[in-house]
Amino acid sequence: MFVLALVMGPGPGIYLINPDPGDPEALRSIFGMPIIYVWASFWFIVQASAVALSYFLIWKSSPESSETTEA
């Protein structure tokens, strides 16, 4: 999910919606904001959700140990 967000957000996936500067008909804005900005915001939310899911479901903190060894 995280890798997908990287490929779709700042990666080549952006070309799915990237407006051609030479095309006057190209869709440049959506909800009043530049389409690339909205796209970046969406994939950022996906990235952040992936980290949140990992935090709650995958990452495990190891039990702490007080034993130490000198380097």
Binding site: F2, L6, P10, I36, S54
Partner: peptide, 18 residues
């Protein structure tokens, strides 16, 4: 607006903290 996409490096750095 292209450079706004740069911010997507931050969740990546965040994940690596852990």
């Amino acid at each position: 607006v292209a450079f706004v996409l740069f911010t997507m490096n931050l969740p990546c750095a965040g994940a690596c903290i852990y």
